[in-house]
Design a protein around this nucleic acid. Structure first.
Lengths: 156, 156
DNA sequence: CAATATAGTTTCATAATGAAACCAATGGAG
DNA sequence: CTCCATTGGTTTCATTATGAAACTATATTG
């Protein structure tokens, strides 16, 4: 073993995202950040995780551009962690994970919360994958295509 | 340290799904399974991972009901791993991860593939989250609600 | 100024990961 | 039927990651 294998150079976009968020804690930290938490102690309290691990994770997330540090909004000398647009972009992943649990968990009655539409207070629909023309797609309706290699030209 | 913390009892559905698929390899194995791989050697070859780790992962996925073993379809005495409905249900998560990379990766030109609609061969749209009535929702349009605790009644 | 809270870092033990060697059961060639 | 390669693992061992607890430095509160 040299290192826990890294997927940085991999052409697979799934592998690439796992490189940044594919560990046990990162997505949970993101989830809490989306709910408004921003301070080290808040994360540590809410998640009950070891402080050294939290420290390492937060640093890594900042390096990956998922979180950014900012001076504390309450005027204190401490700083806080806030989601960048890249971090907020993880929302669909959290929703997908949630919906998978809701649909397939053996004991779904233990799930404490429901994601609702703020206006109506009604549960949201399942995530939908659609074709360009709007047709709903399932996995069987999709394929992977090699991305056209866009060669850079000297002029134009 | 006693154990790598488990999220089994947690009420958060995100944590619950991470319990099953929140490690470095599981989702990549799923991805390959969705592309049609089913044999131990195929996974090992394609992913280039250590055999002992693959062995542990496959066993865990079978235990979690994501994969099932079946007699080999080619008539040999070996068996193969195939996705269960629960496993196929992970598709939106893979799509969400892919789209996050596509949108936020620093070097998106390195991404090798595009997910297309099989009929037209055109790239799919971004995953859409909609309200019951069909309105498109962003994170800001949603909230978490406590799930009503459904008490079990003796009769009725 | 003393006490306490915040945000970490350090130290140490244990668990997970990975590479490589090993092994048992097929499957195939002759 | 016999020998050999392939498949599908397990075992062993070294290294890395994780976690609990103690420790520390700075900031805030009384």
């Amino acid at each position: 073993m040299v290192k826990r294998t890294s997927f940085e150079g991999d052409g697979c976009p799934v592998a690439r995202s796992l490189e940044a968020i594919g560990d046990w804690w990162t997505l949970l930290i993101i989830r809490e950040a989306m709910l408004g938490l921003s301070r080290f102690g808040e994360f540590q309290n809410k998640l009950g995780m070891a402080k050294n691990i939290l420290s390492v994770r937060l640093r890594s997330m900042v390096e990956h551009g998922i979180l950014a540090t900012a001076p504390a909004s309450d005027g204190s000398a401490y700083h806080e962690y806030e989601l960048t647009p890249k971090g907020r972009g993880l929302f669909p992943i959290l929703v997908a994970l949630r919906q998978w649990s809701e649909e397939f968990d053996d004991t779904p009655e233990e799930i404490a919360t429901v994601l609702v539409d703020r206006d109506r207070g009604r549960p949201v629909r399942k995530l939908e994958l659609r074709a360009e023309d709007g047709r709903l797609l399932s996995q069987a309706d999709t394929t992977l295509k090699l991305r056209p290699v866009r060669r850079r030209r000297s002029a134009s």
